[in-house]
Design a protein around this nucleic acid. Structure first.
Lengths: 192, 192
DNA sequence: AGTGTTTGCCAACGCTCGTTGACCACGGTA
DNA sequence: TACCGTGGTCAACGAGCGTTGGCAAACACT
């Protein structure tokens, strides 16, 4: 039993716990699922590999705990209707540059079925609802959202994962100027 | 020495060689680089793993031999100028559905540096020259080609790798209708 | 001081991987 | 018949992986 430190006082292990999570995110983002070994993650966090197991149960458990993705998408009803495309692109660029979880989930999703399922979940639970806010016809929402996902994930893939030189070199503003109208059209333009 | 069968007569080993390559392409496309094991590939080809080594030297050698990608892009100068976007999208969709090498190189490129370099090479040697045929300003060619790559690879990623349900469900014609104008704009529209 | 829970390290397990080298079967040529 | 290149199998190697259980130190509470 022992409710020794039940409520608010921070346990000493919380530090290691977050250290492991940080190292895991970094490795998953850099190497993908298979090559990001528990041993390497543990070494980065300066603890023993067995600690990872004790805290997270298994490698899958660690991945699940390390990569919890909240896109924090804006409420598009508060954005001028002709600005939603640019707003989304801007938001995604910021998001992607701020945290490496997105790169991690994209890299892992490309080779690992569990990772792919994670991405499908994010699409379903986070992007679809937002698309629903601005799409004219509810029936077309999934298709339109998928088109946006294709464009935005394609950008992330070429720029942050594959690192195609021209994609890396393009300045933010220019990306927004090019992709904004595309996303805008996918979301709001009449079916072609 | 021995020029026993030097010229045209097909050696018996060619059959196994191509069997290995076919199995390798399939596994790389389905599993990515790390999880596509030589042992599994050899089993698919119904031979011993050591044969793979004899023929291709190493796993990297096998990958290099199995995935040689020719996009067979059309000569855009023979396509009506306002049709190049739709033509490219159509071409890519066909290409992707016909052979699994593209899925393989995309999956591998996402987690493996050698795979990523392979993709950068394809972009540089095959997509850039074609973009040069239709872009107005030569200086803008790399950026415009990169935008196209982002859109087209994003489609492939969501449809053939991640298998987002709405992206899988969209019929070819509709994809061409949506993405065609996007690619067209990236290639030929004036800089926004 | 004494006791029980945390927090950590260490050593090993069983497994799979890429890779290697020894050995065998066939088939054409001398 | 004897030979040799070719196409193939088999068993093993060393390394790295995820994972486990036992044990020592640090701490919290009485």
């Amino acid at each position: 039993m022992t409710s020794s430190v039940p409520t608010s006082r921070s346990r000493r292990s919380d530090a290691t716990r977050t250290a492991i999570l940080a190292a895991a995110r970094e490795r998953f983002a850099a190497d993908g699922y298979e090559r990001a070994t528990i041993r390497a993650i543990a070494k980065d966090a300066r603890i023993d590999p067995s600690m990872v197991m004790r805290y997270f149960g298994s490698k899958e458990g660690l991945f699940a705990a390390a990569v919890t993705l909240d896109l924090r998408l804006p409420d598009l009803r508060e954005v001028p209707r002709e600005e939603v495309g640019r707003a989304l692109v801007t938001h995604f660029l910021t998001l992607w540059e701020e945290n490496e979880e997105l790169t991690a989930v994209l890299r892992v999703g490309a080779t690992n079925e569990a990772g792919a399922e994670r991405l499908r979940g994010i699409f379903r639970d986070q992007l679809l609802p937002v698309a629903r806010q601005v799409c004219p016809d509810p029936e077309q929402v999934p298709a339109r959202a998928a088109l946006c996902a294709a464009q935005l994930l394609g950008l992330a893939l070429t720029r942050y994962v594959l690192r195609l030189p021209p994609a890396v070199g393009l300045p933010r503003a220019e990306l927004v100027a090019w992709l904004g109208p595309t996303v805008q059209r996918y979301l709001t333009a009449p079916h072609p």
